[in-house]
Design a protein around this nucleic acid. Structure first.
Lengths: 167, 167
DNA sequence: GTAAGACCTCGAGTATGGTTGAGGTAAAGC
DNA sequence: GCTTTACCTCAACCATACTCGAGGTCTTAC
């Protein structure tokens, strides 16, 4: 793991600007992750005379939001798009951030609903002990297809292998 | 995409055994996916005289269970372990399947709880419009660290980038 | 001034969950 | 018998989200 130790250090040039290490330490992420986020357009920096990255404090909030959004299951590409709607010129306002969280809250709601539905169906099947081929809503939502005998069809074309729900 | 068309066809050799194509069609997955599952030990087959895979009907249930488990966010490795506890010798009983679904039901519960908690926190922050650096539970769960001014620390070391909860 | 530590770039590697394609064989339909 | 599907293997590739290492530069502490 990269340098993410915790002892306090002076800010880069004892000024407002944060170095990549500062940001990493304060956000609890690896330096390489910040590099990575930058390549993905999630955060931005400028360079000092020695070609080292410098950040405004703004980036702390951005990284925080990225991490929160990830917890809700939003993929980085979506987060990038959302963050891109933030103003570049001014420091984002509370209203700006609220807009983002409302958007993700909706996605989160949807995901919770889906999972709850799934749980309830699973419950039903635990109750009947079946996971029955012909009747189980988990296995045959539409209850069609299948010529000869039993047969489960069209399972989870909606499966969420990456845990994300499209926004 | 591989051959996953829907017109009915005779079963392999008009017998009980299913070909990989039969299984793919009836489960709504690609043939390559079945190959893949086999390399991961999730399903099993034997070969006919011409080196083609043959399956018992059992595999339909297995694939169904795999897809359901994936929807709950269980990674394939976990699913493999769970399926490995099924008897090889006899066809799994309702009790066998119930055991699996109970296990996953618990994981699902946990995930729903986590997401609901997150949503409620997000709600609070939408309410106050802040995503506040110092006070927000989303950003600073422990409310410690940070020497100079504001500062969000130790964010989501528990983040679920792949959407899965460890069982 | 010097040494340690932080930073730089770029390419490769990791893990998950598959898909695609090449080159060749088997089975089914007529 | 012949053609069309289906099937076989194996390697490579895709996307996501990072991490690691090599080789070299910059800053900071003393």
């Amino acid at each position: 793991m990269e340098s993410t130790n915790t002892r306090p250090r002076r800010l880069a040039a004892t000024k407002q600007a944060l170095s990549v290490g500062d940001v990493a330490r304060r956000c609890g992420v690896a330096v390489s992750t910040l590099h990575f986020y930058e390549t993905k357009g999630l955060i931005h920096s400028w360079r000092n005379a020695g070609n080292q990255r410098r950040y405004t404090r703004d980036v702390l909030r951005r990284v925080a939001v990225i991490k929160i959004a990830q917890r809700t299951g939003v993929p980085l590409a979506e987060i990038q798009q959302a963050l891109a709607t933030l103003p570049d010129s001014r420091t984002p306002t509370a209203a700006d951030w609220r807009r983002l969280s409302e958007r993700w809250r909706a996605a989160l709601d949807e995901r919770i609903t889906q999972l709850t539905l799934l749980r309830d169906q699973l419950d039903g099947c635990i109750g009947c002990g079946c996971l029955s081929l012909a009747q189980c809503p988990l296995r045959n939502p539409g209850d069609v297809l299948g010529g000869d005998g039993e047969g489960a069809q069209r399972l989870g074309s909606d499966h969420v292998s990456n845990g994300s729900t499209a926004l």
